[in-house]
Write a protein that binds this DNA or RNA. Structure first.
Lengths: 341, 341
DNA sequence: TACAGCAACCCAATCGATTGGGTAAGCCGG
DNA sequence: CCGGCTTACCCAATCGATTGGGTTGCTGTA
């Protein structure tokens, strides 16, 4: 009664074959494809016996061995700036789901948005022989991407896009436009943008979309009204400080391209005795779960983070199949709350 | 000039051996260990030639092949409730760092704290032949853990502990005690605890530590003053609502075992016209980066999340070596801010 | 009756690295 | 000059699964 479940070693094809008195290759063919190759490889009843025994013994093929032979690992590498960034964490959840559905497993690594780390992490993943990469931290001026292309590494971008590469992103330009429309219609005429990091398409596109629409509405906005900053609360705080000290009278609305920066900005406004939503409107981006929970709930552009993750997996799968793929941009939605209403 | 970097196929041991006119096994031995086995396997100058060529050709051993032969994959599986939980995301960053230093790669999967998913994810990782597991979502009443033990799967717990299993956690009991000391010394005498999920040792230990210390200080606290809740903002909000409606007069201090629950609770207090820090003190747990950035900065117990992740890796490594290991509890630190000062 | 055709399998090489067991050449002491 | 010891290698099996190319035995048919 000791060998009911797992004996001691894991079950191999050969074990099954021995027990059934047939050749491992037959077992392989039976188990390999639903019944495509199986037809012609074994009789219906043998196939049945094989499948039964496999189930009973809890057989699961060794991915090392399979990968060695087939040259495919069913592994995807995912590189993000940092998983402690809620936005990326949620995208990764989407990736995990979609990847699991397709029989892929995923590695994630944090690059801290540092080009050297990006390269190092990519190398680690390639050394692991991942089938493809999902890059969530692409810099607009990256030279890693051309290198990967030259090395024929299959990859797609996620979250941030770079011209000429397949990507799954939010339609950030549209997002910026939505904010412009909203603030304009609320009667704001003097606004500033906390623009994020200039190497990230998210920041650039959201800012550009905003400015372009603002101007086409007849609004006035100059380079001085745009402050580049880090994506975190501290960055947003500093940017807001600089806006408040620099431009008098202060703007009546702030658009921060990221919720965390927006939260930091709200802190700065408070320190200056300004009430968010009454004195100064604030709009963020991503609609992270916190936005709605703040003392003054934050208006934010809701980007479909989970779906972006899922889309990235599907894209990379198509790249792996050798298909040519177009960048994919998922539509965002503006959630208006007290901070700008 | 085409074969300078990577030709087309990746370089194998045999390629190197052929080019040097020696046997693959010799190359393997040279490259295998710093110079332990190398001594005796090849002359110093041959070894040098091997290493040079390996470097030049950008040789990196195929992990599938190595794993197949050695029965070790250098892969660790990590299961967490959800990576979008900042606490786990940061622990994972610690894991990633430490694992990379030891030559391990890591898979992470989200279980959503659902027992079926926990099992499913563990099975996926084992099917991938991970060398060991780091379980970050252990339930106190889990039956997965005994099963894994029975199957001789090497694993350690992280974040949450369960009696009888190796784990790397915060000293949550101590954390609760710190909060009790603090609130007591601030003169509070009527307090409530937002206790989190009863299946998580984090919640149970923090609550128990608090209550025990509170009573030993001479304080009074009954089961009614303890509300179990989800770990997120919504959970904290609901718990606080229930506390405010249930107990009159309302408590003068709330201890939430988690920052997000604390933030939710702060929202509920606000809705009831109470000012956090003046009318009601609030203390959270984990000191996530947001705590300090809130309009009313949140007092919180700082748990060494990054170190916990790193510790988990070291523990699992020792388990893999067959050593017996003791649970490890890292000391937390109370950060007092406006919400309770 | 001989042969094509098919069903149902089996064989062996292969993927890339590791490893226990050789072996040949050279040197040294007795 | 021979046995024994090093040094510097080589050989081949092995890990588990896959896969192109067999082989065997039977049936149907011209």
């Amino acid at each position: 009664m000791d060998d009911t479940g797992a004996g001691d070693r894991t079950v191999t094809l050969k074990d099954l074959a021995n027990e059934l008195g047939i050749h491992p290759s037959t077992v392989s063919r039976v188990l390999h494809s639903g019944s495509d190759v199986a037809r012609g490889a074994a009789s219906v009843e043998t196939a049945e016996r094989v499948r039964d025994l496999a189930r009973k013994r809890g057989y699961s093929p060794d991915p090392q061995a399979t990968g060695l032979r087939t040259r495919r690992t069913q592994l995807l590498g995912v590189i993000v700036p940092r998983l402690s960034d809620l936005v990326l964490a949620i995208m990764y959840e989407g990736i995990e789901e979609a990847a699991a559905e397709l029989g892929y497993s995923t590695f994630v690594m944090n690059s801290q948005d540092d080009p050297d780390e990006q390269r190092r992490k990519a190398d680690i993943m390639l050394a692991r022989r991942v089938d493809g990469l999902i890059i969530g931290d692409a810099h607009l001026d990256s030279n890693l991407l051309p290198d990967l292309t030259a090395r024929k590494v299959p990859f797609v971008l996620m979250n941030r896009r770079v011209h000429g590469y397949p990507s799954a992103t939010c339609d950030d330009t549209l997002g910026g436009q939505l904010v412009a429309d909203h603030l304009w219609s609320q009667g704001h005429r003097k606004v500033s943008v906390i623009a994020g990091e200039p190497y990230a398409s998210t920041a650039v596109d959201r800012t550009a979309g905003f400015i372009e629409r603002w101007r086409s509405l007849g609004g006035n906005i100059s380079d001085n009204d745009v402050v580049w900053s880090r994506f975190d609360t501290a960055g947003g705080r500093e940017a807001a400080e600089s806006i408040l000290t620099r431009s008098k009278p202060h703007p009546t609305a702030l658009f921060a391209v990221n919720d965390f920066a927006a939260i930091g900005a709200m802190g700065a406004l408070r320190s200056h005795g300004l009430t968010v939503g009454r004195d100064v409107a604030v709009v963020g981006f991503n609609d992270t779960s916190l936005a709605a929970e703040l003392p003054i709930p934050l208006s934010s552009v809701r980007s479909p983070m989970l779906d972006i993750g899922r889309a990235a997996v599907k894209l990379v799968q198509r790249v792996l199949r050798g298909e040519r793929v177009e960048p994919e941009m998922l539509k965002p939605m503006l959630c208006i709350r007290e901070s700008s209403a």
